[in-house]
Design a protein around this nucleic acid. Structure first.
Length: 511
RNA sequence: GGCGCCGUCGCCAAGUGGUAAGGCAGAGGUCUGCAAAACCUCCAUCUCCGGUUCAAAUCCGGACGGCGCCUCCA
């Protein structure tokens, strides 16, 4: 069972969905006024792994909502500056976000609502009106505010004591006037030049926090929802305010688990425009790096620890993935080559890898029954034992509050052991299929290997051209014209294509 | 001022009481037309000081160093 850390209790707790087998999961998405940077994506990639773990390791169904905040001060300012409508301004940023998410191998959530969708605005209005009925609000100059004094639980998530908050509060610099500086706006009264809606609230636009409450409550059904997540900086005030709003309106617990991803730093410093270190996938690509390497790097440390992004780290990530991808290529070779030297009958040789075989979602850490009594004291020897041990280790790592670093270690242990078996000619084609299936299952959660393979399938020059050159080189090698052969190798290397001669033939890969 | 986190090999990073995973880089070796890939071997006692314990990187206290939140921010 997954042990998941919740900010609410500040400890790990066993996780299971409250109803059915479906995890109702809300994650605060991007504000679409610029291209999302790698810090944003740290959060989203980690939450993608949470999603995949729930699905493929725990076997739950998912109902995940990730919103787009497409109305706030920044988007309005951006639209005004560009002299276009709000939608016209935010649409392209949403497109870019979706494209980047795809490049990073993120699964698509079940719902990706926009704050300005009519039904969402109405949902927000509904929450606000319920808050009014329950005596949590006051109106001022056309705006509606949440009165913190009316909600004694306020500050529980962020562990802020109300006394300290009063004293530490700075002077209200907001243009809107409030009774208490800590009170926050639910609905901002209409102002000239700003978009405006009236959903029973009077004309205006939603405050930031109400957007998420409205969309979560509308799209995920009766509270409590199972998981609410976002970046660490959202703990206060955003999520604290969401709790106040949602619970004040529904009089029910809003979310059972609060999951927060720590921040990413760049070369030891906080990302900031003034430092010029706010990187997007564009900068990653400009440096010649693949998105898969970023995804790997993001998963190489625990999501609740600060992660320091460096270009050295990217180099190391590239190499680490290469090890796995090369291993898989080597695995393909087994069964194609010298089957007579393998201990198993050659009838297995042409066997199709069971990748199309349907398997239950909880396959990842599944251990065949006959090996379950395996004593940890015995080092695993047979391939089946090695694989089931790896599956166990991998699963329990993820179940320990998504310990992806430990999970990766399990993958590399498997790679090393199986490589040794291949060297010793002790890997049968069916063994290879078993191992391949395990790696494939692991990657359903990690999402790194398949991503890299997809990237590498896009060579700098057409694949059939590469194949033609490989054959040309092969011919040269056969007539022992090694100068010509090496010339081809060099020619391809200059184009960014590396050749690797294996028993089963020559393999190419992107540099 | 209040709340909280972190400090493990050259770099990245697991491990939270039982005697230091994994990746990258490096050294030596095997294999190899070349080049890779791969394997084998080697490579840390965990910032420092004190304490608790049969036993501590892991618990407690202190020091030093780094960081976050309390305001928009993933």
């Amino acid at each position: 069972m997954l042990n998941l850390y919740s900010t609410l209790t500040r400890r790990e707790e066993p996780f299971a969905p409250a109803r059915d087998n479906t995890v109702r999961f809300y994650a605060c998405g991007p504000t679409v006024y610029a291209r999302a940077h790698i810090g944003n994506f740290r959060t989203f990639v980690c939450l993608d792994v949470l999603r995949r773990t729930l699905k493929y390791v725990c076997g739950h169904q998912l109902r995940q909502v990730v919103n787009y905040t497409d109305v706030d001060d920044k988007t309005i300012a951006g639209a005004q500056q560009a002299a276009v409508g709000l939608r016209e301004y935010t649409d392209p940023w949403i497109e870019v976000f979706r494209a980047d998410a795809k490049l990073l191998g993120m699964e698509t959530p079940e719902a990706t609502p926009r704050a300005t969708d009519e039904e969402n605005l109405r949902a927000m209005g509904g929450v606000i009106l319920a808050l009014e009925r329950n005596g949590h609000t006051y109106r001022r100059d056309g705006s509606i505010y949440f009165r913190i004094a009316s909600f004694p639980e306020y500050g529980r998530l962020a562990r802020l004591d109300p006394e300290g908050m009063q004293e530490g509060a700075s002077v209200d610099v907001d243009e809107y006037s409030k009774d208490n500086p800590r009170d926050f706006v639910l609905w901002k009264g209409a102002r000239p030049g700003e978009p405006s809606w009236d959903v029973g609230t009077g004309p205006g636009r939603p405050g930031w926090h109400i957007e998420c409450s409205g969309m979560a409550l509308r799209l995920l059904g009766d509270p409590p929802i199972d998981i609410h997540a976002g970046g660490i900086d959202l703990v206060f005030p955003h999520h604290e305010n969401e709790i106040a709003q949602s619970e004040g309106a529904t009089k029910r617990t809003f979310a059972r688990f609060w999951v927060h991803v720590e921040h990413l730093f760049v070369e030891g410093e906080k990302m900031s425009k003034s430092l010029g270190n706010v990187y997007t996938l564009a900068e990653i690509a400009a440096r010649g790096h693949r998105p898969s390497a970023l995804r790997y790097l993001l998963l190489s440390s625990h999501y609740r620890k600060q992660l320091n992004f460096t270009w050295t780290g990217m180099d190391q990530a590239e190499e680490a993935i290469r090890r796995i991808v090369d291993f898989l290529a080597r695995l393909e070779d087994v069964g194609r080559v010298q089957p007579e030297t393998r201990p198993h009958p050659p009838s297995d040789v042409g066997r199709v890898p069971p990748e199309t075989r349907p398997h239950p979602p909880s396959d990842v850490g599944r251990v065949p029954p006959e090996t379950q009594s395996h004593r940890p004291a015995d080092p695993p020897s047979r391939i089946a034992d090695i694989v089931s041990h790896a599956r166990q280790t991998f699963r329990s790592a993820l179940e320990s509050d998504l310990n992806t670093a430990a999970a990766l270690a399990a993958v590399f242990d498997l790679v090393r052991d199986v490589n040794a078996a291949i060297d010793a000619r002790q890997l049968s084609p069916s063994d290879a299929a078993t191992v391949r299936q395990a790696i494939e299952d692991f990657d359903r959660v990690l999402g790194v290997v398949s991503l890299r393979q997809a990237e590498d399938a896009q060579p700098p020059i057409p694949a059939d051209e590469i194949e033609r050159l490989i054959q040309e080189r092969q011919a040269a090698r056969q007539r022992r014209d090694f100068a010509a052969a090496d010339a081809v190798r060099q020619q391809l290397a200059d184009l960014g294509v590396l050749l690797e001669d294996n028993p089963g033939g020559t393999r190419w890969k992107k540099k």
